[in-house]
Design a protein around this nucleic acid. Structure first.
Lengths: 230, 230
DNA sequence: TTTATAAGTGTAAAAAAAACACTTATTTTG
DNA sequence: CAAAATAAGTGTTTTTTTTACACTTATAAA
């Protein structure tokens, strides 16, 4: 294939950026980094990386996520392509943005600190470089929309969690209070939680039972067309 | 800015592909083209184009759509980035796929024919080049999912349509029959349709009243948080 | 042992969705 | 020109889902 129609076509810089969500202190948070390279060095930014010739775009995003947090096998979802011509003043760079949901207790604290990162409440995001604020806004909107019909919440909680913790998470995402009796009934009626014999005694004197999300059960129900909804 | 961190980074080919939906003969259809360039010339394919240095990705998709159908201002939505390393045997090409919803009565029939295009029922898509079948499958899934909560249907119907036509469209999308009394009540209760004095007499002897989708009303209701659902 | 705290529980009312069958307007046909 | 055929159009009842709401319980701290 010496002469193909690829010859003479233009190539573009392709990057990925990663919107990292966490949940702690009863708040949804985003992990942001101080940009180290010019242009715009020193300003707050999402983490990102150029896509290499020999890797997929999601791989690039996961690679940089691991490099900055130490986390592997993180839940990541494509947010979209940000491809406006003038979005980056330094060059024509197209970025594929990914949302990542991480368990805030599991990342490598030292590593993150060394990279100049800081957690921000998701309603107090500072001005970011380039179009990163657009990415964040879109990611938050999408998280709100999707959380209702997909079991995303469990990606943000520790493996063992209590029903009240789960409820607070959804109250944060939806930004409105939920009735605890209705919430408990609804989530338990789906039969996707496994109740453990342990209790979490940190949140209250009485203690609340711990549960685990049963991914297998969820998938077999989803296959049958029985939908998650909360 | 003589030396920036862009220097030495790799660039990639970036293309767009376009999944073109239409509705006719009470069926959802997709417009496919015979690929003219090697590799894989002569095989069925989505239409696509490389993204130029001086245009956004959506612009590239809209440009190629107009070139092949004559249509401008078409409803288009990003489906996602297809970026696996080996998805194109000719070169490393990353593709941003877009779904387009067109009114099947409005495209330039000659132009489309000259480009070797053909409409296929959406459940009878032939083998396509590269990962285009994946794109189509994903686009159909997404259309099904989104149609319920966003007024996409009106992008596939002529400007004036009858309630039974609209119902048949949704029956196609959801692949299940709907009750006509419940359907009519639900869609009319949203107050987003304008009833015209005209009747369509082609579909029946009695004739059915024509309606128009009122975009302004829809948007002002959406702003107030009143959601479309069908 | 009293107090404070959050966990855990059931029922009734309201709203939304689903099920269901006949009448009407008009063209075609005999 | 009367009868038949066709798809449009219309309300009500039943079922399901969602919402609203208040007290008891287990335990640690005072």
């Amino acid at each position: 294939m010496s002469h193909t129609f690829y010859d003479g076509q233009e190539k573009l810089f392709v990057a990925t950026d990663c919107i990292i969500f966490g949940f702690d202190d009863n708040t949804i948070k985003l992990l942001l980094f101080e940009r180290k390279v010019d242009p715009l060095a020193g300003r707050w930014s999402l983490i990102g990386s150029f896509v290499q010739e020999n890797e997929g775009t999601k791989h690039a995003a996961a690679r940089v996520l691991e490099e900055y947090t130490g986390l592997e096998n993180v839940y990541m979802e494509e947010l979209g392509c940000f491809g406006e011509v003038d979005r980056d003043p330094g060059a024509r760079v197209l970025s594929i943005a990914y949302s990542a949901l991480i368990r805030i207790g599991e990342y490598d604290v030292d590593l993150v600190e060394r990279h100049g990162a800081k957690w921000f409440d998701y309603d107090q995001i500072p001005a970011l470089v380039l179009d990163h604020n657009d990415m964040v806004d879109l990611a938050i909107q999408k998280l709100r929309r999707k959380a209702k019909y997909q079991p995303l919440g469990f990606e943000l909680l520790p493996e063992k969690f209590t029903i009240p913790q789960l409820q607070i998470l959804y109250e944060c995402i939806y930004q409105r209070p939920l009735d605890k009796r209705n919430f408990r009934r609804k989530i338990l009626s789906m039969n996707i939680l496994e109740k453990l014999d342990e209790k979490d005694k940190l949140g209250s004197k009485k203690g609340a039972f711990l549960y685990k999300f049963d991914r297998d059960k969820y998938h077999s129900l989803a296959q049958k067309g029985i939908l998650f909804e909360i």
